[in-house]
Simulated scan of single mutants.
Amino acid sequence: MIRAMVVDDDALVRLGLTDLLDGDDAIEVVAQAVDGLHAVEQASAHRVDVALVDVRMPRMDGIAATRRLRALPNPPRVITLTTFDLDEYVYDALAAGADGFLLKDTDPAEILRAVHLVAGGSAMLHPAAARRVIDRYHHADRLRSTDAARRIEPLTPREKDVLARLAEGDTNADIAERLAMRESTVKSHVSRILTTLDVTNRVQAALLARDAGLTG
């Protein structure tokens, strides 16, 4: 059972998302929050696997909330909710540790699929839109590029191949097919990549890959 939390200052949005998630036999909404500060309190009181977090909220916005949630002893995975696919705040949320994002008008079936994917360890939902956000708002300067290149240097050539595909938004299954590997081997590579780069999720690894010029 996936334990979910819905975080949004709009009561109707919270109600709609909660009804949607609770309609899935494998998902249980264990908490709701009206803003980021409330979300941190709720996540500290309940075990939450996946939190759907709005970006724009009073008291504490979704970016700050994501950072705080990911710093908890048992951090939930975070899906950022936004109204616009090119919202400048989305990149900041990804950099803060979000595992992906959804548009609020996403098809309900896709929202459920997203929760399952993120709960299972995948990230960067809607990869084409994610790439647009990153490309538009992630302008790496020379210092950051140099640091990123230094951080990926310990990776083996094969791990760099995996990281490059990960940065394009490929799932483990996609990477396995493209690189002619077993999916279990891809998972092992991804785990070592995250450890070596000292990042918390695939999104942050993808940002480093782009800073380092590993992918276009």
Rank of each mutant, 00 (worst) to 15 (best):
A4P: 03
A4S: 08
V6H: 02
D10M: 13
V13G: 01
R14D: 00
L15E: 15
G16A: 15
G16S: 15
L17A: 04
D19Y: 08
D22A: 09
D22R: 12
G23T: 04
D24T: 08
D25Q: 14
V30H: 01
V30C: 06
A31S: 06
V34K: 07
D35R: 03
H38W: 03
A39F: 03
A45W: 03
R47I: 04
V48K: 00
D49P: 00
L52R: 00
R59F: 04
M60C: 05
M60D: 01
D61S: 10
G62C: 08
A64T: 13
A71C: 07
P75R: 10
I79D: 02
T80C: 11
T82A: 06
E88T: 07
E88M: 00
Y89S: 13
Y89H: 15
V90Y: 04
D92I: 00
L94G: 02
A96D: 01
A96V: 06
G100H: 08
L103S: 09
K104P: 05
D105R: 12
D107A: 14
H116D: 04
A128E: 13
A128I: 11
R131S: 10
R132V: 04
H138C: 10
H138T: 04
H139E: 12
R144T: 14
T146H: 14
R150L: 12
R150E: 13
T156C: 04
R158I: 11
V162C: 09
N172V: 02
A173G: 07
D174A: 11
A176T: 03
E177H: 12
E177I: 07
M181A: 10
S188E: 15
H189R: 02
S191P: 01
S191A: 15
D198L: 07
R202T: 10
A205M: 11
A205I: 09
A205G: 11
L207E: 07
L207D: 03
L214I: 10
L214S: 09
T215E: 14
